[in-house]
Amino acid sequence: MSETRFQTMKDLPSCHLLGTGTALCAGCGGLEALHEIYDILGEKTVVVNAAGCMTLLAVYPFTPFRGSWLYTAMASAPAGAQGVRDALDILLAKGRLTAEEDLQTVVLTGDGAAYGMGLSATSGAIERGLDFLYLCYDNEGYGNTGQQYSGATPHGARTATSKGPCGYPGYKKDLFAIWAAHRPAYVATVVGAEPLDLARKIEQAKNRQGPRLILSLAPCPTGWDFDPSETAQIGRLAVQTGVWPLKEYRDGQVVHTKVPQKRLPVEDYLKRQGRFAHLFQPQRNEALLQEIQARIDAYWDNLQS
C-alpha cells in the first residue's frame, strides 16, 4: 500500500465535508460510510441519487452537500449520471466548462436499487464505460420502507416481509461478482467501521477512470434491530466473522484486503442483532446457525484453495 496517502489511522481526515442536520436515523451505518467517503471524494462531485433512505439527505431547502446533487428515481440513477457526465463532457469539449469546474459523477443508491430495480441501468452504465463512481449502501433490505427483504437480505434474517421462524429463505445475491463480471475499472467492498481500508479504496477509485463501484455494508440500527451505539461494532464484527469480506477487483484480479486471521464465530455477529434473535430464542436453531457458518467457512476455504 505504498501508493496510498492513508498509511495509518492518523492519515484519515479529521475534519468532515458532509454537512450535519440530515434526517437519517441516529447511528446510520450508511451515513457513517458516506461521510467517510465524501471526505475523500470531496466537494467537486455531483451525487446522483436513487430512491432509498438517502433520498432524505436533501429535503427542501436543506442539503448537506458542499458540491452538487441530483435526485432521480429508484431504477435509473446510473442513467442520470450518464446524462450528467455526457453533458459535462459536451460542455468541456465546447469550452463552456473549464476543467477546474468539472465534477466527478457519483451514483448513490441503496441495496434495493443496486441489487434489484437499478441493476439493468447499472449494467448498462458499466458496459458503456461510463466514467463514474457508484456507491451502494447495503443495509440488506428495503430500509426506508421498514426493512422488507431485498436481493441483498442474508439467509435467515427476519425482515418486515419474512417474519417466520426461519426468517428470509433466500440467499444474499453476490453483487460484487456480478459487477466484477462486467470487468469495470474498479470494484470494492467497504464498511464504515474499517475507515482505513475504506479510505484506501476510495482513493483507488478516485484515481481511476471508467466505472468504479463501491459496495458498502451499512449496519442499520432501525432495520437490523440493534442499539444505535453499536453500528461500528457490528460493522467490525461483520469483517471479523468473515460475513463481509473486504476485497477489491482491479486489473482483472480479486484481492482480499483484510483477511481475518482467525475468524470469529458468526454467532458473535448474529446475536447482537434483533433480526437474528429467532435463531437463539426461544431455542437455538442449531441447523440454521450451522448452515450460515458453513457458508461463510466455504467462502474462505475456497479462497485458500
Binding site: 446522483v48 441530483l70 432521480t72 428515481a73 431504477a75 435509473s76 440513477a77 446510473p78 442513467a79 442520470g80 449520471a81 450518464q82 446524462g83 450528467v84 455526457d86 453533458a87 459535462l88 459536451i90 460542455l91 463552456r96 439493468s120 441501468a121 449494467s123 448498462g124 458503456r128
Partner: peptide, 21 residues
C-alpha cells in the same frame, strides 16, 4: 448514447438538460 431502456433514456435526457446542454 444508447441507454438500457426508455426509463434510463429519459433520466439521462433530463440529467443532461439540467446540466446545461
Amino acid at each position: 448514447t444508447t441507454l438500457d431502456s426508455e426509463h434510463s433514456m429519459i433520466t439521462a435526457a433530463g440529467g443532461a438538460a439540467v446540466t446545461g446542454v
